[in-house]
């Protein structure tokens, strides 16, 4: 359907050849659609298993905290969600960069698909953070440095989604929002450190450090399991949504019509 585009560099010889060939095929929407379809069930079941193990470990196996009792157990959701919200933003910016430079359509699809999932993770982090704050601080919201940074991250996600949906032409929307994501990625560390700095200036050191090095192994293992579960969950969702997006974008092509009518 398409001829070789500029930027899809001539394939280098020797070792990297196979890898290049793989990426080259991955860039084709149809191949991506089919590969993603095969991967989704595996990722989905992996998510379920890890989630079950992580939740069991976190809610029953891990001992109660001597200071906070059972309230701390929300970190098994809160901390993985917070890590994922940042990870997804970086992934989104990376995909955006690839789409911008090499004009690979699938990268645009991935970047666009990342945004709502990442925003959900940021929102989940804020919700669990404020729920945890009620027994700890006595209020649902304090201007804690981490929570504030997370709130700003959510704003960055919402800005990205708003820009992407405001521009009509798909390709322009993808390229413009990729530039925004890159600007955001440069700014995230600056924002993070400025908020940290602002917080120490106004309120003294943080009351409680989540996931500090002093965490016990009984807590660390479920936390890592949950982190892995969240990661798999993210990739499952990403592929499911990306498949839909690919179908929509390629609606005019022959293979999509074939796929849709054959089902």
């Amino acid at each position: 359907m398409k001829r070789v585009q500029r930027g899809e560099v001539a394939i280098p010889t020797s070792i990297t050849r196979r890898l290049w060939a793989f990426f080259h095929r991955l860039a084709s929407p149809r191949y991506f659609y089919e590969l993603a379809g095969k991967l989704v069930p595996w990722l989905g079941w992996g998510t379920v298993l890890l989630l079950a193990a992580g939740l069991y470990g976190g809610l029953w196996f891990a001992p109660a905290d001597y200071q906070q009792g059972d309230a701390y157990r929300i970190i098994f959701i809160h901390v993985p969600a917070a890590w994922m919200s940042l990870f997804v933003y970086v992934l989104m910016a990376g995909a955006g960069f690839i789409g911008l430079v090499w004009r690979i359509k699938i990268a645009d699809v991935v970047a666009k698909t990342c945004a709502p999932i990442g925003a959900s993770f940021a929102f989940l982090t804020l919700c669990t953070g404020s729920l945890w704050g009620k027994p700890m601080w006595g209020t649902y919201w304090v201007w804690d440095a981490r929570l504030t940074s997370e709130l700003i991250l959510l704003f960055l996600y919402l800005g990205y989604i708003a820009l992407e949906s405001a521009i009509e032409d798909r390709r322009t929307a993808a390229r413009a929002s990729s530039v925004l994501a890159l600007v955001g990625v440069v700014n995230i560390p600056i924002i993070h450190y400025s908020v940290d700095w602002w917080h120490t200036l106004h309120q003294g050191p943080t009351v409680f450090k989540l996931g500090g090095p002093s965490i016990s192994l009984d807590m660390l293992v479920p936390l890592l399991l949950m982190t892995l579960a969240f990661k798999l969950f993210f990739f499952t969702m990403l592929l499911v949504r990306a498949r839909t997006e690919v179908l929509e974008r390629e609606a005019n092509s022959a293979w999509v019509r074939e796929t849709v009518t054959s089902q």
Partner: peptide, 11 residues
Amino acid sequence: RALECVRNDRV
């Protein structure tokens, strides 16, 4: 050479 122009999903 072999230009294609797509606007809002219309070729």
